[in-house]
Amino acid sequence: MRTDFSKPAPPSNDKRWKMIDAAMRRYGHKPHALIETLHTVQSVFGYLDDDAFRYVAASLRVPLSKVYGVATFYHFFRLKPKGEHTCVVCTGTACYIKGANQIMKALEDELGLRAGETTPDNKVSLMTARCVGACGLAPVVVMDEEVVGQMTPDKVLERVQAWRES
């Protein structure tokens, strides 16, 4: 068995790969750091792409298929870039009971999208989450990281329209 692994070169000379390197170093480039590393890649680049998979796989010495398997197993990881704005509708039980479906439907109709998709002009991504932990304020929509409680279809559409016009 080869033991003298040389460190692979980053996919590009983008400085941000240094942050990924630092994360992997923190865990001694051990295979068990895979999920933590993917979290770092996503928070730095916004999503995971083939280049990232290959680089992480080679650096942690995990088969590429495993990296892909892990990335697609967990809902939190995104394999496509996000739009300029994101609208995450909570579909947890409390929000469901308080009418999250109507909010989702209003957004789907307005944007012509399904959950997980982005408008062609790359302005708005529509996503869902299973409970963001603000059930007391249900129904909840997270608009660009801001948790907005007691949402209604009208209110959400108003904010999305403001995004599209800006």
Partner: peptide
Amino acid sequence: DEGDPGAFMDR
């Protein structure tokens, strides 16, 4: 992990 969608005690 608090997976139950509609619970927020642990948070």
